[in-house]
Design a protein around this nucleic acid. Structure first.
Lengths: 256, 256
DNA sequence: CGCCTCCTTGACTTTCATCAACGACTGTGG
DNA sequence: CCACAGTCGTTGATGAAAGTCAAGGAGGCG
């Protein structure tokens, strides 16, 4: 965290609002102040914890997950760079943990509210982030309830590609997933063995390419979209930040 | 809709805030003005529609669902009496339709914003409603991804019981579900045939009783909670309205 | 070198969807 | 009043999809 955090948070925040220099510095200062580096697999908030902090993901991936008594767990959403996690109530309903190496600002709600007074825009932004998250969750729920393994996997890959592209972390269908197959299974609702087979089939069908752990390349977007049961364009509209109250979306679109 | 709507909306809204008489009347007036009666199965918003209205459920059940190209659909959440549905962006990511006979206020966002100026409490309330909805979705996602049919069903029944109890529409584990088994299947992510079998097993194990279409009675809460993989108490805390910003929760608890 | 984690593959089992047939119930129109 | 169609729940038979178990191999690291 030696570099400025403003631009990291930027793709979301700076792009959307016209930042007053002084105010921006204040946000920057707060984020820096509460910034922590988290190692892969390290939990930040455990399901059921009392929480009074707001999380801002400055870099890396966080997972929001829930577990059953028998230990099986399901990732409910992934929070990428620039996202804000506000646990809705006094008690968190999910476990938040780092999927990759991540730097996260853990801002006490009091401080967060203070910033919001200076930048009412933050409210609109975090509202848009929540709406996008909700859309993604709905999309994934649909496929958990009604889709087969290939559909879940195809959707997950497309979702990640779209989101990472918006952050400049994917290009021409190539991106990196900092998860092993077991964790990816927790995301798509499959056993690690079946993740392996499902990916294998997509590879041997020439739809994607996979290297190491895990560099993905989408070779055939049309085929993958078809399997996922979604149109790429509508996915972008739905999953990337939007909101009726976020009129100047252009700066965001610049990343698409 | 001949009776006052204030008390209908009340379990949520009135209970939490101390209503100024005049202001309350204004909310009442707006809700009344935009109120519509919806027949079971009738859609209100279709996935992909442009929307600029806020929905307030005055009575009945609404479903928020999504569909795959092949026509299979999944109910992502149910909105009961007193809930507020704000589609996050300019385009709705879900289809909203009536599950039972329902009366719904379709309030244009402009009017809604106007009310909020008079009652800033509404923001906190709708925030709490969204948080509860998100918790429920996470809980259901976990079971869609990782649970077997019995677990999904058991959870659904417990969730509905808890929510309806808070509205005074369930008592001693007895409540009514205004859905047939196909629609219930869309909710829990099972085929209608398997809904039938799963319910049948719960009945023959003496855990629940089912009459007609569909009156439920939960006979053995412990067994059902065990199957659902959840503790009843934590479910109540999680699913019913809460929020750090909703300090005076007592009036809500009065319904529990 | 040896341990550890993770991917891969095969064999087997479980769960659930699907297909199909039947019966109960409801409402309709003759 | 009765035939009729339509919807819905129920049940059995069958098959496909995915989980589980197990073993082997590749790579990374102390």
């Amino acid at each position: 965290m030696s570099q400025a955090v403003g631009h990291i948070f930027g793709a979301r925040v700076e792009g959307v609002i016209t930042a007053h220099q002084g105010v921006s510095d204040h946000l920057e200062k707060i984020l820096r102040l509460h910034c922590r580096t988290i190692k892969p697999g390290q939990p930040i908030i455990i399901e059921g914890d009392k929480t009074n902090t707001v999380l801002c993901v400055l870099s890396g991936w966080l997972s929001l997950s829930k577990s059953l008594p028998d230990g099986e767990s399901q990732i409910v959403d992934l929070a990428l760079q620039g996202e804000i996690i506000e646990t809705g109530g006094p008690v968190s309903s999910v476990t938040v943990e780092a999927v990759s190496q991540a730097s996260v600002a853990l801002v006490p709600v009091a401080a967060w509210d203070a910033i919001k007074l200076q930048r009412p825009d933050l409210d609109r932004i975090s509202k848009a982030i929540r709406a996008a998250s909700r859309s993604r969750m709905a999309e994934r729920m649909l496929r958990l309830g009604r889709g087969r393994a290939a559909m879940r996997m195809a959707y997950a890959l497309l979702e990640l590609n779209v989101r990472l592209e918006a952050l400049g972390q994917a290009r021409e269908g190539k991106f990196h997933i900092p998860m092993n197959q077991r964790i990816l299974g927790d995301f798509v609702g499959l056993s690690s063995v079946h993740v392996c087979r499902t990916l294998g089939r997509l590879v041997s069908d020439g739809i994607i390419r996979v290297a190491g752990q895990m560099d993905i390349e989408i070779l055939d977007f049309d085929a993958l979209s078809e399997i996922a049961g979604i149109e790429l364009i509508s996915l972008q509209r739905e999953i990337i930040l939007h909101g009726d109250d976020m009129t100047p979306v252009q700066p965001c679109a610049a990343f698409a």
